[in-house]
Amino acid sequence: MDDDKVLEQAEAWLSEGRKVALATVVKTWGSAPRPAGSQFAINDAGAFVGSVSGGCIEGAVAAEAKESMKDGKVRKLSFGVTNEQAWEVGLACGGQIEVFVEPVAWEPVQ
């Protein structure tokens, strides 16, 4: 699977009848492993492609992404040294990351 083809993979999953959510790095401070714009897609079977960090927050993002598939709502997640969750998810690099999570092919819910 080509890691740069996140959107293409998302489209392929949708055409197979899967539910899909997309996570995008929207802001970073300090030494974040992936720049803004980096994307990660996951389907309802748990398969994923791409990354939003060096692997440290993908698990937490995946859990939120699955929730967004269920409720159809977007989410803005923050990970970093000031956030207690940083220790839980192991973002040890000293950076902060803001990630936007959205269900794909669902109309945004107001």
């Binding site: 959107l7 293409e8 998302a10 489209e11 949708l14 959205e102 269900p103 092919a105 109309e107």
Partner: peptide, 10 residues
């Protein structure tokens, strides 16, 4: 993201 947006991007 809407399906139409995704398709336009790809």
């Amino acid at each position: 993201m809407k399906l139409a947006t995704l398709k336009a991007l790809t």
